[in-house]
Amino acid sequence: MSDMDPLVPVLVGLVVDTVRFLDGCEDDEVDPDSAVTMMESVAGVLQRLPEDQLDRFLRALTDLAESESDPQRREFLESFPGACGLVDDED
Rank of each mutant, 00 (worst) to 15 (best):
V36N: 01
V45S: 07
M38T: 15
V87S: 03
L22E: 05
D52K: 15
S69D: 14
V8Y: 02
D91K: 06
E29W: 11
V36I: 10
G24I: 00
F76P: 02
D52C: 09
V30D: 06
P9T: 06
E90Y: 07
G13I: 01
E78D: 10
A35I: 09
S69P: 03
E29R: 14
F80P: 04
E90H: 08
S34I: 12
C84Q: 15
P71K: 10
R48I: 00
A65L: 04
P81S: 06
E78V: 06
P6A: 04
L11V: 15
V15S: 03
D63N: 12
M39C: 13
M4P: 00
R74I: 05
G85I: 07
P6V: 03
L64R: 01
A65M: 04
E26M: 07
L46V: 05
Q47C: 08
D91S: 12
P71D: 13
V10H: 10
D27F: 00
L64E: 03
A60V: 02
G44Q: 07
E29M: 14
A43Y: 10
A83C: 03
D23R: 15
L11G: 06
V42S: 06
D31E: 14
P81A: 04
D89A: 14
P81M: 04
L22G: 02
S2Y: 02
S79Y: 04
L49D: 07
G13A: 09
L11C: 14
L54G: 09
F80Q: 05
P50Y: 07
Q72P: 00
C25R: 08
P50D: 14
R73A: 05
T37F: 03
Q47N: 11
V10P: 01
V45I: 14
M38E: 12
L54E: 10
F80A: 03
L14C: 07
V36P: 00
T37R: 12
E66N: 14
R20K: 13
D55T: 15
P32G: 09
L14K: 08
R48A: 12
D88K: 15
P81K: 08
F80M: 03
R56V: 06
D3H: 11
A43Q: 10
L58P: 02
E66T: 11
D70I: 06
S69T: 15
V87Q: 08
E51D: 15
D89S: 12
L64G: 01
M38Q: 14
S34W: 02
E40W: 00
R48N: 10
G13S: 10
V36Y: 01
Q53E: 15
E78L: 06
S2P: 00
E29H: 11
V10T: 15
D89I: 09
G44N: 12
E68T: 10
V10N: 05
D5E: 08
F80W: 09
L14F: 01
V45F: 13
T37W: 00
P6D: 07
D91V: 13
L7C: 09
T18D: 05
L61W: 01
D5P: 00
D88M: 07
M1K: 09
V16W: 02
L14Q: 11
G24Y: 00
V10Q: 12
L77H: 03
S41L: 05
D52L: 11
E26G: 09
E51T: 13
D52R: 15
P9L: 01
E26V: 10
L11H: 12
L86H: 04
R20H: 09
V10R: 10
A83Q: 14
S67K: 10
